[in-house]
Each structure stands twice: as structure tokens, then as C-alpha cells.
Design a protein around this nucleic acid. Sequence first.
DNA 1: CGTCCTTTGCAAAACGTTTTGCTTGTTGTG
DNA 2: CACAACAAGCAAAACGTTTTGCAAAGGACG
Lengths: 340, 340
Amino acid sequence: MATKIGIREVAKAAGVSVTTVSHALNEATSSRVNPQTQQHVRAVAKDLGYAPNRLASGLRNQRSQILGLVSDEITTTPFAGAMIRGAQDAAYERGYVMMVVNSGLDSELEQREIRMLQQHQVDGIVYAKMYHQGVVLPEELDGLPTVLLDAVSTDLSVSSVVPDEIAAAEAAVETLISAGHTGIGMINNVDDIPATHGRLEGFHNALRRHGLTPAPQHITAAVADTAGGREAAMALLALPDRPSALFCFSDRVAMGAYQAASALGLRIPEDVSIVGMDNLELIADALWPGLTTVALPHYEMGRWAVVRLLNDIEGPTVPAVQEKLACPVVHRGSVGPPPL
Amino acid sequence: MATKIGIREVAKAAGVSVTTVSHALNEATSSRVNPQTQQHVRAVAKDLGYAPNRLASGLRNQRSQILGLVSDEITTTPFAGAMIRGAQDAAYERGYVMMVVNSGLDSELEQREIRMLQQHQVDGIVYAKMYHQGVVLPEELDGLPTVLLDAVSTDLSVSSVVPDEIAAAEAAVETLISAGHTGIGMINNVDDIPATHGRLEGFHNALRRHGLTPAPQHITAAVADTAGGREAAMALLALPDRPSALFCFSDRVAMGAYQAASALGLRIPEDVSIVGMDNLELIADALWPGLTTVALPHYEMGRWAVVRLLNDIEGPTVPAVQEKLACPVVHRGSVGPPPL
DNA sequence: CGTCCTTTGCAAAACGTTTTGCTTGTTGTG
DNA sequence: CACAACAAGCAAAACGTTTTGCAAAGGACG
């Protein structure tokens, strides 16, 4: 790489002016140049390995071709990775690249990071949370095209995408019902977040649809980790009229239920069936037997967010939409018919 | 936000020239402006919320203040997240921002992504792998400052940072030895990667240091996931002279060992002690009892890589270094004294 | 009072593109 | 043959900064 090759070098090599090179390379203005010249210029450009400096063209066009992704937590779960990957794939396909920042829970840091993105003239922002929750948008990003990822806002003028919690829970419970279970318990989350309410609602919906009424003592809540799930499941499975199946708020909770079952000498799925939610592969796949669960479409949500964002940026104005994405059931080995 | 405020607006508002504003704001050239004027200009700038357009200044300075992070897999493990967060934190502190791309295993895609980063004039690149491995650097990034993250190259002219696998394994095994174990088994990985060799070497080192010799039949290898660990552990624990403790290649393998122990009616840690590696919190924390393991310093490696990269970019040339970062033991509940 | 520094500020060029006129030729038409 | 219409390519301006060179003003000194 002797000397950085810019558009001038291409022009010189092709024996035309800089202008012509630009016209020849940009699809939009290529009508201003003879097809033959165009071809020639393109050949030379490719030959030299010319790639336009996006700082310069961004400056000129007021379009950086950069998208910002601001998230609270990139670290603890693999979910974050899937969302980001979905976002990046979509961005890449349209010639954009993502700048990712994450702020933990520090909202002042978040502010400064957003400003930093704005200094880089990002064309839009995906504002992501690592689990489905309500947010208020920082006012920094007024005026900037924005899409919410795994979050909803009361401000309905901004598009958002979240998992369809209710339908997901319904699907999970359906797999239990269609395996023959009627006495189904649920271990819900104690936090006041959309998933908690949505999944409980889905649980009830599915039962009601089949004319089943849940026993009140079979519905419980716990801190949504393995220890919480273990204790809650321990209590549920020790009941005289213990449920024959457990619908768990999350895969981590379900892992606790496995531990409880094991401690009580109950086999899965012969003695008790279990379904989780999240499809946290690291766990669902590692449990023995594998955990039947419902996948949260993180990759697809990341994609959706960016596609929508790019349409807002490049396309005509269309009304914002609040999207809910479907969550497919992933069958493994933790659901069987109820014991006789 | 009536109209975008640029340096001209600040100049007008402060009643000075654009030049003076620039000088006043840039620490380096501030000697050319009266301290009083400087203060005034800065006040006005802050008042207006002025923030320089980095596209423009990048173009002018040939410095984008952007770092590229190219990785193979951002998705499957939470490790990726920790590395990226470490990298970002370090970048942010120095006023840089990260552009993250990931290519899966598609090296042609990787090429194109790197070129895209170059178009954005990134000042340097962190080339990251999601587990410690050897790589050959794509030639695209000749001439660009580069640091390897969780990877090593035969090309010693580029700096790299990886976990100190050997010391990590030694530390893990030490915790078993100091709990009184003498018959220690190991379930290694079957893949031919640095971690496999390093951890085995560490295992031997620790034993040798205490005058112990491992029984050959106690050293085994398996596919490094839970199922592999389960089967290997099953075999090991069914041996007539079964080891009293198991050193597992990874936490996922260790989870398999838990399952095997449970299936064989062995309690942890009363009947058998187990240590893992990786400190995959999702698993290590969720197991019951908690898994004692060795943390891989992903966050710190990410940080190290960026700090080093920025020094290469901004500072004087110094020889490349191949860094190995220490791995702290995380004590939970899976190690106890050997049974009598 | 004239000369020579020093201090302070400004105008202008440059970074690498894209795009808007404008010029030059060429072809078609009356 | 003259003139209009049009195609093809070019020069120059613009995007928002930073930095270099220069000018003006002020002060010190002989």
C-alpha cells in the first residue's frame, strides 16, 4: 500500500475528472456519464481497490451511515449478543455499521454516550434494553430517528419491538395441556415487569381456553433465579395435591425446579413435567433431560429494530408501530404425559 | 433545537472568529488565545451545547476517534459481552467509541467488514476471538494498528492478550489439593486448542509441585459440553478407585459432572469435590451447590487490548507484547475435604 | 519618536467527497 | 447552412473542522 488511494488517484488513473469518477460510481447520478466510461471507471476503481472515505462523504451528505445502539447491559446474558447480532446483520445488509455503547444503569453516562454518538453524526439510534421493560426516552435523542428494542415507551410516536409475552406463555402452557396435564402450576417472577404480567396472563388464557381452572395454591412467585425457582418448586412439589407440571417464568427458574425435583426424588418428565421460558441455550440445552421452553426472538427483534430504523431514515414517513414478535416453542425432553 | 449549532454559531455568539473558537476549545493550541477570551468562548460553547462534528474533525485530522472490534462470534456466550464491555469502557475513557462487527466463521464476510471499518477510517482494530486460539491475521489490516484479543498469532509483531491458562489450571487444582485431595481426576477437552494443552499442563504442574502423580485412568477427555462432561464423569466416578475430586475443563463440563454425581447418588462436595473453569456465572452460580471455578478475565482482557491499542495509536512505538492475564479462583460450594 | 518584539486574533487553505451549474462538442431539424 | 437541443464531462463550491501564516495592535527600548 504505497499511498492511500482516493478518488483523485482513481480519476488520474482512469484519465477522467474526479467528478466523473464520482458520477460513475454513484448509482444515483450515473446517468450523467457514458455507460462505457462508467464501466471503465469502475474497473479502474476496483483495480486500485478504491473505497470511498466515509468520513468525507458523510460530511458532504450529512449521512454517516452509522447507527448507534445504546443498551443498558451488554454483559450478563447471551441475549444481548443475539440482539446485537441481529441488528448488525440487518445494518450490514444495507451498508450501515453499528456503534455500540452501553451504560449499565448510569443514566448520566448514558447521556454522555448518546452525545458522543451524535458527535459522530449517527443517522439513527436503536435504544435497547436487555429485558422487556418500560422506559422513558432520554430527551437527548429528540429529533434523531429512534427505535426501541426489547422495550416500550408511553410515547407512542416511536416504534418499538418486544416479544409477545402473552402468546409465548400460552404456547408454553399449551404444550403441557396437550400432553395431558390438567394440574399445572406456575412459578412466576416477583418483579413488576411486563414479562411477569404477560406470562401470567398467557398462563390463565391457555387454561381457560381448555376449561381448566388453576388451583390458587399452584400459582406462586419467586425471585427469578435458580435459587428462587428451587425453593418455590420445592414448596409446590411437596404439596399433597402437587401439580403434575410446572410452568416456569424462565429457564433459570426451571433449572431450580430441576434441582427441587431431584432433591425430592422426582424424575423429569415421568413424575413431573417442566417448561421454561427464554430458551437460554446454555441452560436449556445443558439440563438433563433437555428443557422444553419458549424462545425469545432476540435475533429477530434486533433485526426488526434496524430494518424499521433504516426505513424511517431512508424512506417516507410512516406511522410508528408497536411490534410484538412471536416466540416459538422449543421442544426438548422435559415434557411428558402426567403420571397415572 | 432550532438550528444545528456548529463552530460558526459559537463564534458568532461569542463575537470572535471561528479560528479563535477552535483554538480556545482545543487544549493543545489554547496558548494562542487570551485566557480571558478562552474562558468566555468556552462558556458560550457550553451554553449553546456545542459539540464538534467528529466527521469533520476526523476528516481534517486524519483521526476518526473510532476503534473497530472485529470478532467471530458475539452471540453464544456471555464472555463476548464482558470482553466488549471492557473494551468499550477503556475506549470511552479516552474519548473513543467502538464499532463492532462480527462475522461468524465466514472469512470473506470478515474481509468485507474490515474494509467497511477502514472506510470509516477507524484508528485501530481489536481483533477478537471468543475463545483463546491461534489465528493468522487477515492481510487487510496490514498497516493498521491492531491488537489481538483472546487470540495469539505466530506474528509476534502484533500485541495480544490471552488468559494465563496454565496458571489458572494450577490455581484450580491447588484449591483441591489444599482441601486435602490426593486422588484428583481431570476431564479435559478433546479439541486441539491452547486451553486444552494449557489446562492439562497446569493440572500436572500443580500435582507435581505437591509430589502427587495422577493415575492415568483418572485423566480423560470429552466434548466440552454438559453431555460430554456427564458421560466422562459417569465413567470416572464409577471406577473402583474413583477420584475424590474432579477438575473439569469448563463449567459446562462441570455441570455434566454434577449430573453424573446426582445420577450415581454422590453428594457434592461430601462425596466428590468439583472445580470448573471459566466462571460462567449463568451456570456456576446456578448449580447447587455453587460451583467453585476459575474466572477468565474477559473484561480485563478487553480493557487491556484497547489500552494497548490506544497507546500504539497515540504514543511512541514500543515493542509488541504477548500478555497473559491472571485468572482468579472463585470459591463457591463445590469443594470440600475428601471423604474418609 | 522610530524600531522591534510580543501578543492576540483572523483569513484562508486543507481534509476527501458529492453536486450544481457550465462548457464543449455532437447530432438533429428547419 | 444556421441554429437549437442534447449528451458528456469538468471546474468549483460546499460539508465543519483544524492549523498555518499573516496582520494589527500594543509595549519596551534606544
